[in-house]
Amino acid sequence: MKQTIIIMCGLLLFCLSLFISSSRAFQSDELLIEEEDLSSEGGFPDLAHIRSSSAQPPTTTTRKRYSESDQDSKIQFSLEHAFGDSEFSPAGIFNARLKTWNHGAQTLTKLRFSRNDFTEVEKEKFQNLLKGDDFYRIRLPSNVLSSPGREYVISSVKARCLPRESLDEHFVIHMEGVNILAVNYGAPGACPHPRQLQLPAKWSFKSHTVLKNSEQAPRAPVFSEDILGETAEGEVVPPPERSFWAKYWMYLIPLGLIVMNAITQAMNMPEEQGGGQAQQPGAAVQRGPTPAVRRR
């Protein structure tokens, strides 16, 4: 649960409004038992808004691992991409720290991403994708320790979803320990349906990365007898006080009508009586008999 909030903190950096709306889903539920906090590093404040200008040479596909301490070790895994049906080729490097917990579990923290810029050939390929409204595909190893693991996890998006000012991309990496279950790749915001052909102003990437672990399901509510008694006896919640109008409108409206009716009648009475004197020949005469009269 807390992890999700932490992930949401990460989201906060680039999308504050989203945070407000989506964090609403995760509040309440004090029935949850807080699980051991797996990533207390304060989320991923460095969620890699790294331009590809600082990219490393694209040939580092192999994993480099050197341990600083017994607890944490640095780790690398590479992102690969493909244009349409083409073969996958390296596109960037993820750097992270592998944190080993006392109970043996391992999690990734402090994920950094360095994206390679498109080469000229790749630019051309990407433009072809844009023209054909085809898929831009990426893949990650399914295990960060022994790449590629069992198999690569693949994700794709229509190429026309990416270009804005620059090429905006958004990774959600679903982790389970050191395994990558899935990567969800796409535009950080909406991708409106009739996809227009639009070339990016700058051929550089603006990448956002989020790591997600599974959250714990809410437990079934447990009622013991004393809790039940307490809620029944203790806080007898008074119904929220409503305004006078909200409570009695059904009485007030007929009352008002009656009053109005009475007033008009009362106004007509003197008019009828004074009609003979013809002091006011105008409106009162034209108005004719009142409804009360007509009813008879």
């Binding site: 989506s22 889903a25 229509k158 796409g186 950080p188 991708c191 409106p192 349906h193 809410p218 079934a220």
Partner: peptide, 20 residues
Amino acid sequence: TSPISLFSRPEVILKSQSYY
């Protein structure tokens, strides 16, 4: 009335509860 594209990032919230 605007068409929905699944390639957009979905903005969903989920509610869940368990019962015996």
